[in-house]
């Protein structure tokens, strides 16, 4: 049975493979960038407000910090209670061009032992979880020094 691939949140990322990137918005008046996207008003208090346009964010950034979850997170995180919990690594990444930090899960198999603050990582498409009908897709961070 084939499942539908659906982003876990609408409008936060797009593309496949090397063309995958996070999506933010940029204020046409002050050039502030927002992720998660702002679509109604610019949040810069010194800005009179401009149209908010969708922009792709840089695919690469530097590790701001990292950690992991050694215990199963509560709902609404989805995990199979029948299976032992496998720790997930979380990476906060500083995007140089946008001057913001975005948190995300690391690709499967990357542990905290593989990471250092300042290391370069890139955003890649990932799968968060699956149910009977749907494969829920997300973004993952992957160190650029590793493949796979």
């Amino acid at each position: 049975m084939s499942r539908t691939r659906t982003p876990v949140v609408t409008g936060w990322f797009t593309g496949e493979g090397d063309d995958f990137h996070l999506l933010g918005t940029r204020c046409s008046a002050c050039a502030s960038v927002f992720f998660p996207r702002e679509d109604t008003f610019c949040r810069n208090p010194g800005c009179s407000g401009g149209a908010l346009e969708e922009v792709p964010l840089s695919r690469r950034g530097r590790v701001w910090s990292y950690t992991d979850g050694r215990y199963r997170p509560p709902s609404p995180y989805v995990s199979d209670p029948e299976l032992p919990w496998e720790p997930r690594t979380l990476i906060a990444v500083e995007l140089t061009a946008e001057r913001l930090v975005v948190l995300g899960q690391a690709v499967t198999g990357v542990t905290v032992a593989d990471l250092t603050v300042g290391m370069e990582v890139e955003v890649v498409p990932g799968v968060l979880d699956e149910d009977a009908e749907t494969t829920w897709t997300t973004w993952h961070w992957r160190p650029t020094g590793t493949r796979g």
Binding site: V8, V9, P36, W64, S65, Y66, T67, D68, G69, Y71, P73, P74, S75, P76, Y77, V78, S79, R88, L90, A92, L103, G104, Q105, V112, T116, V117, G118, L128, T138
Partner: peptide, 26 residues
């Protein structure tokens, strides 16, 4: 945002504490 961080990342409160701690170490 509080719902999203659990749904998308499984980021509990201690996850944020871990990020701050690691950042201080570095």
């Amino acid at each position: 945002p509080d719902w999203l961080r659990f749904r998308i990342l499984g980021a509990t409160n201690p996850a944020y504490f871990g990020l701050y701690a690691r950042r201080r170490m570095a």
